[in-house]
């Protein structure tokens, strides 16, 4: 275990605790974006093969798509509550 994996692990633990403790929905989305970067990097460092790169790319695009959908729904709900 070298210094790079240790640093990424510490960052993901810190971000996980901050997701659990904050109350604002928008700040939770920003922390989840940071966690996705950390897990994609850990997957690529754990499997040293070209298939690991494909898994990391698929995971990253899928989680970004899902995060996009959550943010869009948040905007729709705020617009619908602000109109009335």
């Amino acid at each position: 275990m070298d210094i790079v994996m240790l640093l990424i692990g510490v960052i993901s633990f810190v971000v996980g605790f901050r997701i659990f403790l904050t109350k604002n929905k928008v700040q939770r989305l920003l922390y989840i974006c940071c966690l996705n970067f950390a897990i994609a990097a850990l997957i690529a460092l754990y499997i040293k093969s070209p298939m690991g790169g494909v898994v990391a790319a698929a995971y990253f695009v899928g989680s970004t798509l899902s995060s996009n959908a959550i943010a869009h729904t948040l905007g729709k709900i705020q617009k619908l509550e602000g109109k009335e």
Binding site: G16, I19, K25, R28, L29, I32, L35, N36, I39, L42, I43, Y59, S63, S66, S67, I70, T73, L74, I77
Partner: peptide, 16 residues
């Protein structure tokens, strides 16, 4: 909506 965000957080760990 908080439940769905936390479910997202769980799914990342599951894939890992």
């Amino acid at each position: 909506l908080d439940k769905i965000i936390m479910l997202e957080f769980l799914t990342g760990g599951l894939i890992g």
